[in-house]
């Protein structure tokens, strides 16, 4: 379980997060939604200790990750798989080496075992056979899927997705959404999805937290979101519907609003 308690974060003179609190229970998929620049990625980086809050705590399984040594923090981080917005694939390595990198670094597996595991991970993301290709030879969607294969290679307990569908066409977005949904179901991992794509959020999340004006403005299940009459949340969802040219909320929800 991940608990974020009253965190504040400022960069130079700009406050990004103020008194943000959030709980992410085991086995759930939580979407953190909000406008671009609202601090979603900053919040995500606090969860894995890439950023330290100016105030407040981040607890992973009850451990305050800002109070432990760097060595202990690295141990905590190994329970996470992170899919970064641009994939963050190592461009000096090919696809196979990218996925194999965590296995080679953190396990004592033999080359044959690593090869088998990499092939399995690439198979899970429907990318068998692209091992020898360099990241520069892959499309945006393929890069994200390879990054996802790398993120799951160590069988993490938590997976964080930072804007998993941004910059992708609708069909590729759907493929990524299906993958995230399947991984959550098959591996029973706790997932945190940072997104402003409501279409994606509605498809994959159990709960959503709406980050607005530096705070968590609203938290609830997807069903509660459908029923919510919070003006700011509805305005965000509505703007998303307009942007994607179709309704983000199901017809029943629209009827009730």
């Amino acid at each position: 379980m991940i608990q974020i308690e009253h965190i504040d974060k400022s960069f130079a003179e700009k406050t990004v997060l103020r008194d943000v609190s959030l709980e992410i229970p085991e086995g759930q998929t939580l979407a953190i939604i909000g406008r671009s620049g609202s601090g979603k990625s900053v919040l995500m980086k606090h969860i894995i200790g890439l950023l330290k809050p100016d105030r407040g705590r981040v607890l992973v399984d009850g451990i305050d990750i800002n109070e432990i040594s760097y060595r202990e923090l690295r141990q905590v981080r190994r329970q996470f798989g992170v899919l970064f917005q641009g994939g963050a694939l190592f461009d000096s390595m090919n696809t196979f080496e990218n996925v194999a990198f965590p296995l080679r670094t953190f396990t004592n597996d033999t080359d044959a075992e690593i090869r088998k595991e990499v092939e399995h991970c690439l198979d899970v993301v429907n990318l068998s056979g692209v091992g020898p290709k360099k990241p520069s030879e892959l499309s945006g969607g393929m890069k994200k899927r390879v990054a996802l294969a790398r993120a799951i290679s160590l069988r993490p307990r938590y997976i964080i997705y930072d804007e998993p569908t941004s910059g992708l066409d609708p069909e590729t977005s759907n493929t990524i959404n299906d993958l995230i949904k399947n991984l959550a179901d098959q591996l029973n991992v706790t997932s945190i999805v940072i997104s402003h794509d409501m279409h994606s959020v509605l498809k994959i999340a159990d709960r959503a937290a709406f980050l607005h004006a530096m705070r968590i403005h609203w938290v609830g299940t997807i069903a509660e979101m459908h029923r919510s009459d919070d003006a700011k949340l509805r305005a965000f969802v509505k703007a998303n519907e307009y942007a994607i040219g179709e309704s983000a909320l199901p017809s029943t929800a629209r009827a009730s609003s």
Partner: peptide
């Protein structure tokens, strides 16, 4: 610098690597 701006360094850290 390229590794930093393309989040490759963050990816290394997020994996638990120094």
């Amino acid at each position: 610098g390229t590794m930093r701006v393309t989040e490759q360094i963050d990816a290394l850290e997020a994996m638990g690597l120094n």
